[in-house]
């Protein structure tokens, strides 16, 4: 197997000894089939055990290893080194999040926003067990299945120009998850979620730059979910003004 030495330029920040983040370079002998995460693991195992970063599954399922690679948010386990341009590879923690240590960021804001959109099935009346399952047709499933594929890697928050400007913005992944449950035929909780979704900090802070969908490693297309919710919330708004329902204001 062909091997080439690649220079990794990794942002380091250890709060107890560094005043501000700085770049450290490592020369890594990379196999042709290596992804960026393999190269970082090589650094940790052979060159510098003090490097901190998150990873788990190494197969684009867990969403832990997202980071900035040459300035773009991506899963390091899904980015092949051979696909990157020649020269040093710049690796930084996810943009728009505070750095906890080296490549590890503080995700508290994202986690809190995920909870606020109530991303679970809400029923106004529970169906008795003896009545059996909630059946769902393939067409009903298709309406939201794409939006279930999110792995909470937060690449979309890192790419979103609006989240960078407005920290209160609920943001792409959380809004998409709200839409996922709104579109589920078993769910009855849309009106509750609209309190957050249809507020100024919800869908209306999105300027439809579409960067979230560009960088999403699972092709969830959060921008489409947000635009669909804008249309639905706009219909609600006019219905309320006309006294034809549309939820509370």
């Amino acid at each position: 197997m062909t091997q080439r030495t690649v220079e990794l330029s990794i942002l380091r920040y250890r709060p107890e000894e560094d005043d501000k983040p700085w770049f450290q370079t490592y020369q890594v002998p990379c196999d042709e089939d290596w992804v960026v995460l393999d190269a970082i693991n090589y650094v940790k195992d052979h060159l510098d055990g003090s490097l901190s970063y998150r990873w788990s599954c190494h197969m684009a399922v867990c969403g832990s290893c997202s980071m900035m690679i040459n300035g773009d948010p991506a899963l390091s386990c899904k980015t092949f080194i051979r696909d990157l341009p020649e020269g040093p590879v710049r690796i930084e923690p996810l943009a728009n999040f505070p750095i906890e240590r080296d490549l590890v960021v503080v995700m508290d804001d994202f986690m809190e926003k995920l909870q606020r959109v109530k991303p679970y099935l809400i029923r106004s009346t529970e169906k008795p067990l003896e009545e059996g399952q909630h059946l769902q047709s393939p067409a009903e499933l298709k309406k939201f299945k794409q939006y279930t594929l999110c792995i909470n890697c937060a690449c979309c928050y890192s790419a979103c120009p609006q989240y960078a400007l407005i920290p209160e913005f609920i943001g792409p992944a959380a809004l998409t998850l709200a839409h996922r449950y709104n579109q589920d035929s078993r769910d009855q909780g849309r009106d509750e979620r609209e309190d957050v979704v249809a507020s100024n900090e919800g869908i209306w802070d999105c300027s439809f730059a579409g960067a979230c969908s560009d960088v999403c490693p699972k092709h969830v297309d959060p921008a489409s979910a947000v635009q669909q919710m804008k249309i639905a919330s706009t219909v609600d708004w006019f219905m309320r003004r006309l006294g034809l329902g549309g939820g509370k204001s």
Binding site: A198, S199, K230, T234, D236, F238, G247, S249
Partner: peptide, 15 residues
Amino acid sequence: MARSNKPMVWSLFAA
């Protein structure tokens, strides 16, 4: 949280 009145301008923007 209060629901936004932005649909008023957004609907004209989208149209």
